[in-house]
């Protein structure tokens, strides 16, 4: 992996930039433009979490990081996507696109035999990250349901409980 890792690290900026643009494409083009342009993290939390999230995930993959770190890197992006108008598949699909982005960046180098085996290994890491993303996504969907239940519980007047117990 060393050779490939070095190549990918050298091109990290370009890859992440391109990947982030690609991940934005899940939104309508009008929104994607805004999310790509505005740099303030409070005015544009989606753009910000995509920028920082894609970088963190890519670095974690390069480092061959453990599941925990990959999940953490994915957290913000999936937390947001779990409550948006997206099918689950569309929410995690952007990870697969990293494969294409890498191939685009490497160009003909990706077809060179020397890289190819390592590249296959790297692609497997991406596949694994997709599974992690799916876990994170589902955890947030479950959280959403749990919060809804909690809220319904809170609407039962506090004094009703009082009457029963006291």
């Amino acid at each position: 992996m060393d050779g490939l890792t070095r190549v990918l690290r050298n091109r990290q900026h370009a890859i992440v930039e391109r990947w982030c643009q690609d991940a934005l494409a899940v939104y309508s083009s009008r929104a994607a433009l805004v999310f790509a342009r505005e740099q303030d993290q409070f005015a544009n939390p989606i753009g910000h979490s995509l920028r920082t999230g894609t970088r963190a995930v890519f670095e974690a993959l390069l480092d061959g990081a453990d599941d925990e770190r990959i999940r953490r890197a994915l957290d913000d992006i999936l937390r947001t996507r779990a409550i948006q108008q997206l099918a689950p598949s569309a929410a995690v699909e952007f990870l697969f696109h990293l494969k294409d982005v890498i191939r685009q960046e490497l160009g003909s180098a990706s077809n060179e035999a020397v890289c190819s085996h390592d590249l296959t290994e790297f692609m497997r890491r991406i596949d694994h990250a997709v599974l992690m993303a799916f876990d994170v996504y589902v955890a947030y969907r479950e959280r959403l349901c749990e919060l809804r239940i909690n809220e319904v519980k809170r609407t039962i007047p506090w004094s009703v409980g009082r009457r029963k117990t006291g």
Binding site: D22, A25, V26, Y27, S28, S29, A32, H97, D100, R103, Q104, L106, G107, S108, S110, N111, E112, A113, S116, H117, T120
Partner: peptide
């Protein structure tokens, strides 16, 4: 096969349009 050189055509991949269709 997929892990051999030449399986993917990088140029073709670049052309995939991922933005939702614009209406």
């Amino acid at each position: 096969t997929f892990d051999e050189p030449g399986y993917y055509d990088p140029d073709e991949l670049v052309q995939i349009q991922r933005h939702p269709p614009v209406t």
